[in-house]
Design a protein around this nucleic acid. Structure first.
Length: 653
RNA sequence: GCCCGGGUAGCUCAGUCGGUAGAGCAAUUCACUCGUAAUGAAUAGGUCAGGAGUUCAAUUCUCCUCUCGGGCUCCA
């Protein structure tokens, strides 16, 4: 009896009888692992558990406690979804069904253009649970492309996938077929077989902690000109507890929805009379926005920026010179004809700032010139893309264009990133992820040297800042490399806010120059940058980040003062006056409602502080303090409370 | 723009198998004056998103439009 020896991840070796599978290895290590293992990696390649091992292989067993294991579980669940749908809808066909973050989806086409309803999801769920209860094995097979075409004769999307196998590797098909043309399939019953690269869990019985979430339309291959398929989304986890936690997180995220909070807290509304994506800012929302904008202006003023203002529309000629009409016409609002000229609403502020630069001859002594504007731009977003404040057709960028020499560029980029992070931190974000996008392989403008210098400058800035970043090779715009900065919010969601982009294009297009110290005329480099991105969007992100409970410096109302009874009104107003004099936002809520109710209202409005004043306080010049999220504190002197408020504002607590 | 699902009082929602609607909160008035998360009563409030069609009768059925949501696509 011959035997084989395999290597485990910890470096140890294990001897097994010849012909042993990955499952046998798991069982040999222990019954717990045999039960938990879903797939294995053999020499780094993911394989089914029933894969036969060969001597010398290094093998790792993958359980559902790893991302890889979870992905497999989700992928297998998507197969069960497809099986259920094909059984319930004779004549239906299926396209692709990969695992995604938190779950999976599968795309279908129903006979006669049919669609799924919410009730259908329940039926499908029931059928899926039947399939899981039947504990059907996932059995892998391999065939030639010709045989595969035969096997999936009734399924045009599968055939199309097989036919594309021989072409270049296609990331969207990575879970379907191998790039080398091997066509594999998985069969888990007589009636269901799916084209698939695998691997899969050993049998359907290993699944079950899933929930079908929603139905959506999705273009075949994600292309607008291809048919719209019916996509079913689901979430899947390795335990009931994890599934429950995930659903709970979704509920928490829903509670933070800025559109809901904006309504509840009376900040912003979207009257239907105005049109899609158009909001009005109520006094409280406008106050928060003003604080954000004022803070941004202060920081820029201290950061060496010059302020500018520019109009909302400009003649077509400007947009022709800038290239926007060539590259971005679809995203622009339609033109208007005025006095025989054609005007466009601005989708960006850059050409205006360029005009300011060009308004006189520039010397190297004036550079870097940093032009800053809270500039409102208009972009024609597709109606289906509009989403509250996060995606709208008009928004205000905290936009700046920096004109500098080539030599100054690197230092400028480095200090910019520092500035960006410092401002974002001031708003309570401290978890960042950056992306460096480099020169695209096709068309781009600018010489190699300048691309290299800018990219190095950006990279060095990232390194110096100690920021986590990924490199998107070739992901830059044609006119220059860039850094995008994402922040993570209080519940771990990433939002892209800031961007820093070098631009070698606009200086050419507008023929920008400066006079260098040797008297030569030279071309400056331009840097575009936005920190908050869009003020409206940033406000929405902040609202979700804080779940509506703004820190004291941002809170539209900072303090409510509740007199216990009418007799304490004068004292309450006196305290309010002291707070207002000290520059805080405070109001008195008279005792027309019971105290308990007024406290409740104040808490529901997420006020940082609710003060209660009664006989004791009038006598001792104190207040009772309800700080948001903390226990009641009695007998706090007014002076002590003022100091506390001042500290909160100062520290952005 | 495309697919699916919604739109009923200021808000959150119920309801009408076709006979023009109801609750809670909010609002207003009155009473209550209260030490920490909902005091009580009364009143008012709706062309059931808009338009057209079918019908004796449409908030309800059909179609169109607007708009919102979830996706897809897009975001130089």
């Amino acid at each position: 009896m011959s035997s084989i020896v395999v290597q485990l991840p910890d470096g140890s070796e294990r001897e097994l009888p010849a012909g042993a599978t990955a499952y046998d290895l798991a069982a040999d290590i222990g019954p717990g692992l045999a039960k938990a293992a879903l797939i294995a990696t053999v020499d780094g390649q993911e394989r089914d558990l029933n894969t036969e091992l060969t001597t010398g292989a290094s093998v790792a067993l993958i359980t559902d406690s790893s991302e890889q294991g979870l992905e497999t579980l989700r992928h297998s669940t998507s197969h069960v979804l497809a099986q259920a749908v094909l059984e319930l809808w004779p004549g239906a066909t299926f396209a692709i069904g990969p695992p995604i973050e938190h779950g999976f989806y599968y795309d279908f086409e129903l006979p006669k253009g049919g669609t799924f309803s919410d009730e259908d999801l329940e039926r499908i769920d029931t059928k899926m649970r039947d399939i899981i209860a039947a504990d059907q094995p996932f059995v892998r097979g391999e065939v030639s492309a010709a045989e595969a075409l035969e096997m999936f004769a009734d399924h045009k999307y599968k055939r199309e996938t097989i036919e594309r196998v021989t072409g270049a590797e296609d990331p969207e098909l990575a879970t379907e077929v191998a790039a080398d043309g091997t066509v594999s399939y998985y069969r888990n019953s007589d009636s269901f077989v799916d084209l698939c690269l695998g691997p899969h869990v050993p049998s359907t019985g290993r699944l079950g902690h899933f929930k079908l979430m929603s139905v959506a339309g999705a273009y075949w291959r994600g292309r607008e000109n291809e048919p719209m398929l019916q996509r079913i989304y689901g979430t899947a986890w390795s335990s009931k507890k994890q599934l429950k936690q995930h659903l709970h997180r979704l509920e928490e995220a829903a509670k933070r929805d800025h559109r809901k909070l904006a309504n509840e807290l009376d900040l912003v509304s979207w009257p239907q009379e105005l049109g899609p994506g158009l909001a009005v800012w109520h006094p409280k929302g406008a106050l928060v926005r003003k604080i954000i904008e004022d803070y941004s202006r202060d920081r820029h003023e201290n950061g060496g920026y010059d302020f500018a203002f520019s109009p909302h529309i400009a003649k077509a000629n400007l947009w022709e010179t800038s290239g926007h009409l060539d590259f971005y016409a679809d995203g622009m609002y339609p033109p208007m004809e005025l006095d025989g000229a054609t005007y466009y609403p601005k989708p960006m502020n850059c050409p205006f700032h360029v005009m300011i630069y060009k308004s006189s001859q520039r010397s190297y002594r004036e550079l870097p010139m940093r032009i800053f504007e809270l500039g409102t731009v208009y972009r024609y977003e597709l109606s289906g893309a509009i989403h509250g404040l996060l995606r709208s057709r008009g928004f205000t960028q905290d936009d700046s264009h920096i004109f500098c020499t080539r030599e100054e560029m690197q230092d400028e980029l480095a200090s910019l990133l520092e500035f960006v992070l410092s401002v974002l931190k001031a708003f309570g974000f401290d978890d960042f992820q950056a992306k460096l996008s480099t020169r695209p392989p096709e068309k781009s403008v600018g010489d190699d040297e300048i691309w290299e210098a800018a990219t190095d400058g950006l990279r060095a800035a990232l390194e110096t800042a100690g920021l986590d970043y990924v490199v998107d090779e070739g992901g830059g715009a044609f006119y220059g490399p860039k850094i995008d900065v994402d922040v993570k919010d209080a519940i771990g969601r990433a939002w892209q806010l800031s961007t820093i982009q070098a631009d070698f294009n606009l200086p050419e297009r507008f023929d920008l120059e400066y006079v260098a110290n040797d008297g030569e005329r030279k071309r400056p480099v331009m840097i575009h940058r936005a920190l908050l991105g869009s003020v409206e969007r940033f406000f929405g992100v902040l609202l979700e980040h804080y779940a509506g409970a703004f820190p004291v410096w941002l809170a539209p109302m900072q303090v409510q003062i509740l007199p216990v009874a009418e007799a304490h009104d004068d004292y309450a107003h006196d305290v309010a006056a002291q707070l207002k004099t000290a520059g805080f936002r405070a109001e008195v809520i008279a005792a027309t409602d019971p105290l308990g109710k007024r406290v409740r209202n104040g808490k529901s409005a997420k006020l940082p502080y609710v003060l209660v004043v009664g006989d004791d306080d009038v006598a001792n010049n104190t207040v009772g303090v309800n700080a948001r999220g903390l226990d009641v504190e009695r007998d706090v002197t007014v002076d002590a409370f003022l100091a506390r408020l001042a500290n909160d504002v100062e520290t952005h607590a």
